[in-house]
């Protein structure tokens, strides 16, 4: 095969790909739900990243108290009111998003690669390898992440890092299962056989041939997972694990606000809404992606 014909082929392939992407994007954007979801997430990520700039009182996320200004209802100065030690609720929500998103990044950043790798290996080799990996997965699946996080943080210190480790240590299981089941059926496909006959190495087959074909379900799962991780993080911080004062955890804010319900409703309600919006965003995006890829598969 000459260099020229190769580059022609490349061009054809990349043109096809571009067309595919364009079509997908069009289909994606034709669903208002998924676009709204994406919009929410992009907006929240930007707000969280630039929290020190956009928050009206960035110092309120740190070592700050103002007891002359406690539990003030929403006003122009404090659009979402103030909490029980006089801190601006809006500012704390923005910084709280940072913690939530960081938790998502760490848990999925560790859990997904590990899970995918194990799933690929198990699904491709089968036999004893599969048995060992998948039984280990089943065992880990039996432990609820929330309980595991509680156990680890009470054995060690109830810090954010420990909570992250605990959740990440269990999160790979679902991805391992998902990938293993796809790979188990993909490995007998003709394109895999062809690559084998052509003498391709195992890593090449795994990562260049099979992996791309499992990407769409993984992507959908990751998006939907993000919502779960946020909820688990909020659940942990609600019961006081993982966020050390004065860090603004969204769950902690909901929990502390409940002492002042119903008179000072704004602390709990707004921080609860903040969790709701973020999780909703991820779920809407995930649903959108799933529909998108389902159609792709059906065609």
């Amino acid at each position: 095969m000459s260099a020229e014909s190769a580059s022609v082929l490349d061009r054809v392939v990349s043109a096809e790909r571009r067309e595919l992407w364009q079509r997908s994007w069009k289909r994606f954007t034709s669903r208002p739900m998924s676009v709204v979801g994406l919009g929410i997430i992009v907006a929240i990520v930007l707000l969280a990243v630039f929290a020190p700039v956009v928050a009206p009182y960035p110092e309120h996320a740190g070592k700050f108290t103002d007891f002359s200004n406690t539990l003030q209802p929403p006003s122009l100065d404090h659009p979402l009111g103030t909490d029980h030690v006089g801190r601006d609720v809006l500012s704390r929500i923005l910084f709280g998003y940072r913690l939530s998103l960081m938790l998502v990044a760490v848990v999925l950043g560790f859990g997904v690669p590990v899970g995918v790798l194990l799933g690929l290996v198990a699904g491709y080799y089968g036999g004893w390898t599969e048995t060992i990996i998948m039984r280990a997965t089943d065992t880990a699946l039996a432990l609820p992440p929330l309980v595991m996080a509680l156990a680890i943080t009470s054995a060690l210190e109830p810090t954010l890092t420990n909570a992250m480790i605990a959740i990440a240590a269990l999160w790979w299981t679902w991805h391992a299962r998902l990938v293993q089941s796809i790979v188990a059926s993909e490995r007998s496909e003709e394109y895999v056989q062809a690559a084998k006959l052509a003498g391709a190495s195992t890593p090449h087959i795994l990562f260049r041939e099979i992996l791309p074909n499992t990407l769409s379900p993984i992507l959908v799962k990751v998006t939907l997972d993000a919502g779960f991780v946020i909820l688990i993080g909020a659940g942990l911080s609600f019961i006081g694990v993982g966020v050390q004062p004065p860090q603004p955890g969204l769950g902690t804010m909901v929990s502390q606000g409940t002492s002042y319900l119903p008179d000072s409703w704004w602390v709990s309600v707004f921080s609860g809404l903040a969790i709701f919006v973020l999780v909703m965003g991820f779920n809407m995006l995930g649903d959108g992606l799933r529909d998108l890829f389902d159609v792709e598969v059906n065609r």
């Binding site: 070592k63 030690v85 050390q244 004062p245």
Partner: peptide, 24 residues
Amino acid sequence: GLEEKMGLLFQQNMDEIGINVELN
């Protein structure tokens, strides 16, 4: 609640004089 508020106030006060307080 009362002790949490005391802790946050102490943390802020100590920050002013250069002592770092971890609330636990």
